[in-house]
């Protein structure tokens, strides 16, 4: 896992808990053209943040989902 991926994972754990890694892997695989999350790059962040906001909104309340997306974007 690269440094950026590790940073994003730590941020996401604070919101999603232990399932954060699996969650991020699925977002990257499904919405970033099969990209492996561990290989994520800074150019991928806007798209990742968008899908995290949508998907996380099904797990936590919308304000927290938006907050998580903001933090990922600024990672």
């Amino acid at each position: 896992m690269n440094v950026l991926a590790d940073k994003i994972l730590k941020i996401t754990i604070e919101y999603i808990g232990p399932a954060a890694e699996r969650f991020l892997e699925r977002q990257a695989e499904r919405h970033l053209n099969g990209l492996k999350f561990s290989d994520i790059e800074r150019k991928d962040l806007p798209e990742l943040a968008k899908w995290v906001k949508i998907s996380a909104g099904l797990l936590v309340d919308n304000s927290r989902a938006s907050e998580l997306a903001e933090k990922i974007l600024k990672a």
């Binding site: 808990g17 399932a19 969650f23 797990l59």
Partner: peptide, 18 residues
């Protein structure tokens, strides 16, 4: 609690939904 619930929901949810 929110984190645990989120993880649990993720595990229990239909794989196609999220």
């Amino acid at each position: 609690f929110s984190r645990m619930v989120a993880s649990l929901k993720f595990m229990m949810m239909d794989q196609d939904k999220i």
